[in-house]
Design a protein around this nucleic acid. Sequence first.
DNA 1: AGCACGCCGACT
DNA 2: GTCGGCGTGCTC
Length: 662
Amino acid sequence: MTVADVSFDAPLSHPFSYRVPDGWTLAPGQRVVAPLGRANRTGVIVALHERDDAAGLKPLFRLADSARVLDVDGLALARWIAEQSLSSLGSTLAALLPPSAATNHPEQATHASSRSPAPIHVSEREAALKRGWPVLEGSRLPDTVSEREAGLKRGWPVLEGSRLRSSDQDGSRLQSVPKPELLVGAGRETRLLERIGDGPALVIVPDVEAAARWAQRLGRRGAVVRLDSGVDDAERVAAWAALRAGAASRAVGTRSALLAPLPRGATIALVDEHEAAHKPPGAPRLHSREIVLERAAREGQRALLTAGTPSVEMWWRADSARAVLEMAAPGAWPTTQVADTRGILRREPLTPTLSRAMRETLNSGRRVLLLVSRLASALACDECGDILRCPECVIALAYVRAARTLGCRVCGRVVPLPETCPACRGRRLSPFGWGAERVEHAVRRRFPEARVARYDPEATRGARAEAQRRAAAEAQVVIGTRGALRLFGPGALGLAGFVAPDQLLRLPDFRAGERLFSLIWGAAERIARGGALVLQSQSPEHYVVDAALRQDLGAFYRHELKFRGELGYPPFRRLAVVTVTAKAPADLRRLADEVAAALGADRELVVYPPSPDRRNRLRRIVVKGRDDLPARLAAGLPDSGRPPSRSRGTIAVEVDPVEWAF
DNA sequence: AGCACGCCGACT
DNA sequence: GTCGGCGTGCTC
């Protein structure tokens, strides 16, 4: 008797076994609907085997797709992703597969669920046909478990599974692996398009807007399908199926498309590999860059990555000859100026330098973007600009206002607020910089004629965000955070002004410098020929500012890599953040100490003491390790990452965190 | 993750 | 005396 092991979208580390009804032909990677608990749920077959004692198992209910969605290579890659990120295979797969009829519309098992609204009984097949979802040919889809069993008894046609494609079995392994190539500098997107030409390719982009744009550009050289959520479910499903069947060979998508079937010899491209959107919260808890590189290596595909300012990780790969850097000659760069704000800028966010540049830009009919940041959670000296840092970890100390303490997010050390600046003995240590509201007020006062708009997409949602976006699109002066750069294409700006970029450097995050560098560079690339970039800073000699203004990528990475290496940060070490929660403070303390002790028993790991967050509801344990960090965490955490019983609390692991300033 | 089962507070 | 809170444990 054949038994299928099925993984579901749940934080369960083990698959569930089901009896495969006679006559079904299945393969690993096939999605099925099977009874789990009270309901029928969609899962992926991760293994098939013959077993004699399968009589007690429940049977599979039906197939979820007309053909299997993944081949064995795709499944193996998903396994690798799950292992690397310490998450379940089921949730990883769910995040990386196209929608299916059953996942979007959970069906009833034997009775209507008491919670769901009045069920109108339509046959699944009809519903599926209406929506253009795949249906099985030559078979009637049973509506319920009992009906299905009755159907089998009556000898209704048996579901016909997908046949194995010959390419799955030909066993040919990867040929020579091309090193990944990193395209940097002016014209990188055009270069990528040229490299792809009319050949087979999968282009992974950070967001839906980029997907639309890239589908259009790639479409000029050959048919392209879209796998992202910017098109409706039916189109995504059809696109995936077409790739699987070989009817399509060029696709664009966001990270949900990373496992899309591809023909041999395809190129996998990752656009803007440095973008944080390539690692949003939730499964698959791994950066798209890592997945692209791993897949290309496994399948012998060419990997191409683009970036204005590559991630330090990727630059390091190129530096150590594990990737090829293809950098264009420097393009146009704006006139740059630094306004030193040490000791000034107490009640006026705009220096004379920035005001003058704004006036000139507005007079010439061009647009101004003023970059601000949300409130910083660190302290700096108003006199000398020095930032209070952890003596050991060197990242900015996080300022906890209520407790009047400073804490390190890495090692957990807590220090009382100093009276004076340790560097210059100055008495003004200030946690606040210039928020968008105050800057807007100042701009309106000084430029009453100008159309001014604020844009901070991170802080606004829904209809309000849309209104804000429209206003910003019209405005002559836009005051915005990092996300506001998206409003402007290359050369769309006359002036970019950084009101208080030091605030970004104060963030208690070892990536703070990398992020500011990327932001300055991104702004500079959007400034028209003859335009200007003005930076107000208390630390004008900072290597981030200096390298960006001189348009010197290499200088920044040299300095940054040195700093990362000396202090044992990525890419030289891997990091993980283990978050422990519990209701009772005593449980929290005990569980956090237990976890830290268990991990600390591994001499290869550096485990920092658990540090409380500001509400004392959770504790974070930062762990440093080498390439094998995920395996060592899995071995050291109770029950392989599965949360222990809730009475004691929960444990969550984030490997290779990107956004961890909070 | 769902979902049910199971013991303690304010109410028709 | 019940309705219902969410703590606890299971799902092939």
